[in-house]
Design a binder for these strands. Structure first.
Lengths: 189, 189
DNA sequence: CGATTCTTTGAAAACAGTCAATCTGTGTGG
DNA sequence: CCACACAGATTGACTGTTTTCAAAGAATCG
């Protein structure tokens, strides 16, 4: 499964086999069964996880027990809690497998060491962060500008196929809607 | 006014005076009067702008004429439209001065050149992008999780003083509310 | 199958948006 | 210096959207 990660890296920038070996040495491959947690709220998150297969969901649970989905991560995406990673504080998020999932995990100190020692890796990550920022800004724009129905339509066209893979109530919580509202929107389409 | 930018840079990482000179040579200082545009929707944005004094607002206008504020930028913040910058497509946003404002503008090709030639600058920008991403994710969380009142409360405590500086209807549009709704929320506090 | 998870539906309530009018303060030009 | 225009904030009455709560139907999985 590390091969998926290698392929991802090579598709973004050229890496020598020595560099790949170094990255491999810093990595741990981990499998998660559906509904298993990679991170539970309250724990400190100190890694970065690349999804080689399957799907993860990052979400918080408020006082009323309502879930709010911050992001999904399918193959070739990353999962992390930057907030906890950066602050060292316990996380307010859970990261849970929606499907059986394989991840390549790099503990943060290893991750940072690889960034320092492998410039191409650093570059890939910087680009990733930049694109993530743009995507997040765009999502903010949708969240404050669109009606429930528009948000759902945009989600469908921005992430084609994803809605088929993820339970509807999780899509609803990603869009800031209740499961019932999303169900009613879908009826009208 | 370039001095404000220099001070900002020095506070983030050490720069030699030669490096500062190089950055200065790549910069253009520009002043904007209140209500003047730095970018108008439809134009292509090809720069990065550091706010030395004053306040900018980035917003879109939808078909109904409603404004949606993506972000504010006061002293020591940056304003940009990464989307247009990255894609080369016309921007969907306006960037407008809320107060008389002074910005230090770097055209993107100069900006990228400085990043390549001045490692400390590159580092500052990478860190900035990373923090911006975290902040944006946090805003997504508020947008999808909180009620109108909770969003406003969080805004007040996250950006103390900012609400006093910015017209209420713009704060409302930042939070995804109408001016009337925000007014009624404030009455209840 | 039987249990669990997920989706749908209905009715009522809460919430936020719309439209129109008024009020306030500020600044500009005569 | 006043008058007027303008941007911004507030209010009220109404409409519309979304949530809530409760229940019933699918679908999935061991």
């Amino acid at each position: 499964m590390f091969a998926v990660f290698e392929q991802y890296l090579q598709s973004k920038a050229p890496f020598t086999s020595a560099e790949i070996e170094q990255i491999k040495a810093a990595s741990v491959v981990r499998t998660l069964r559906k509904r298993q947690y990679l991170l539970q709220a309250g724990d400190v998150w100190q890694s970065n996880a690349f999804v080689a297969s399957g799907c993860l969901r990052t979400y918080s649970v408020d006082e009323k027990g309502t879930e709010h989905t911050i992001r999904f991560a399918i193959e070739n995406w990353w999962a992390s809690d930057e907030e906890s990673l950066h602050s060292g504080q316990p996380s307010r998020y859970n990261i849970e497998a929606i499907e059986d999932t394989t991840v390549v995990v790099l503990k943060n100190d290893e991750f940072e060491r690889v960034r320092r020692e492998v410039p191409a890796f650093d570059k890939v990550i910087n680009t990733l962060v930049h694109r993530s920022f743009m995507a997040s800004q765009s999502r903010v724009h949708s969240a404050i500008s669109f009606s429930a129905e528009e948000k759902y339509r945009e989600f469908l066209q921005q992430y084609p196929g994803l809605a088929q893979r993820i339970p509807q109530h999780m899509v609803a919580s990603y869009l800031g809607l209740t499961a019932e509202t999303l169900s009613r929107i879908r009826r009208r389409l």
